[in-house]
Amino acid sequence: MSFVEYSDFIQDGDVAIVYMGHESMMPVKVQKGAQTQTRYGVIRHSTDLIGQRYGSKVTCSKGGWVHVLHPTPELWTVTLPHRTQILYTTDIATITMMLELKPGSVVCESGTGSGSLSHAILRTIAPTGHLHTVEFHQQRAEKAAEEFKEHRVDRLVTVRNQDVCKDGFGVTGVADAVFLDIPSPWEAVRHAKTAMKKHGGRVCSFSPCIEQVQRTCEALADQGFEEISTIEVLLRVHDVRTISLPVPDFGSDPSAQTEPDAAEKTDAAEKNPPAPASAPIQDTVAMKATIPPREIPGHTGYLTFATKPRT
């Protein structure tokens, strides 16, 4: 297992995702002899996980079972231990495309936070790219570096514990893309420019508040960035349901007999006068439909993108 490479079988030291349901997943560090408690009972790593194929059904001690999934940045995003607010997959997907990330890209990011976006970036830029990520909170920086090692992506990433607004990204003229998720991104815009290749590149700043966006856009324009554009992407989930709608009883319908053919009218009426009563009345209609969840995220943050022209 690695976050940048699929493997078929679960090995000692892997991170596996235990899937119990849509809203119920957890990451497990696979270790010989270790046990994990789930609501379906205990999973014994040595017998239940190690050597099993990713995607297998694993029976827990209470007889219930779970699926064990190969880790991906997307699964990690919904299961990771939060140390900060994190970016979710909808925004991450947009950021990745709009920053034009691909294998070989060199990316600067700040702050590292809980590493949700970092894992997605690493997946995309592997095997030849590099991520320079800056986190001013020492513990968080250390924790992130530790995770990257556990997830076997540490060769692709450098974590720096410094203040990006004061000290920049620690690199000059190497980045194809810069991502900012900090409270005052406008203070880091000039550092972003310094970090980027002289041939130019793309920058993105994520901010929850419009005032932050306003100041960032001004700073970007001042620093000569072009194609400044602010967007917002919202995910809508559609739950599929079978619904059945009752049909009200309109009572007996005399026109049903009189309408079809005027010539047969008398004939038909004599033959079966109580027709509505004998005909089966369809009182419900069943169909497949979608409903939105009761509550959905209405706002995460504004994404401001810009292009650094070549200098």
């Binding site: 899937y19 001004e218 992407v233 809508r236 497949k288 979608t290």
Partner: peptide
């Protein structure tokens, strides 16, 4: 919706979701 129903009947998949996204552009000027 049909795909979703079929997958549920057939099994062999988890975490099946039907989604779309809304995209909103902003004019940002002083």
């Amino acid at each position: 919706i049909e795909c979703y129903t079929k997958l549920k009947e057939h099994g062999g998949t988890v975490g099946v979701r039907l989604t779309d996204t809304w995209l909103r552009h902003y004019q940002v000027l002083p």
